[in-house]
């Protein structure tokens, strides 16, 4: 099939849908990444419970029974985990945003000092 027949297959709604999804997700991406700035605190949650909360500027290693986490040079990474596909390890070091490990129900988030911009209630306060 040549490009010409491909264009014939396309409907206006296809193009409209594509543009809508593209602009929508790009806008959301810009909006969210503007809200996610470089953090100062790392929070480790397992099973939706806050386990640890450390400043990001102190290097340390955190050993959980299923995962090793390293804080180094203002960034945090999962360096080893016992899950099958190790997506969390592949994500590497982050200084903002979050690392999510689904099999172990673990979320590592980097946040600004104390206050969360999006107004999520802090478990420790």
């Amino acid at each position: 099939m040549s490009g010409k027949t491909l264009i014939k297959t396309l409907t206006y709604w296809d193009v409209a849908l594509f543009l809508f999804l593209l602009t929508g997700s790009v806008t959301a991406l810009i909006y969210v990444s503007a809200g996610v700035s470089k953090g100062a605190v790392v929070k480790i949650e397992v099973n939706n419970k806050l386990l640890y909360r450390y400043p990001l500027n102190e290097d340390r290693r955190i050993h959980l029974e299923f995962m090793d986490i390293e804080v180094k040079g203002g960034r945090v990474a999962v360096i080893d985990a016992d899950c099958p596909n190790k997506l969390c390890v592949k994500q590497g070091f982050i200084d903002r945003g979050a690392i999510i490990c689904l099999p172990n129900r673990t979320v590592i988030t980097v946040e600004e000092n104390g206050k969360d911009k999006r107004g999520v209630v802090d478990a420790t306060t």
């Binding site: 999804l21 593209l22 969210v32 999510i100 999006r118």
Partner: peptide, 30 residues
């Protein structure tokens, strides 16, 4: 994972990549 913030951070990226791969798969299907 009931961590709204973490889900919120990854959602736009997933939707954007999904749109691109969805379009590519659609072309192959056609």
């Amino acid at each position: 994972i009931q961590n709204f913030r973490a889900i919120l951070v990854i959602t736009p990226i997933i939707l954007l990549l999904g749109t691109l791969t969805g379009a590519a798969n659609g072309i192959v299907t056609a």
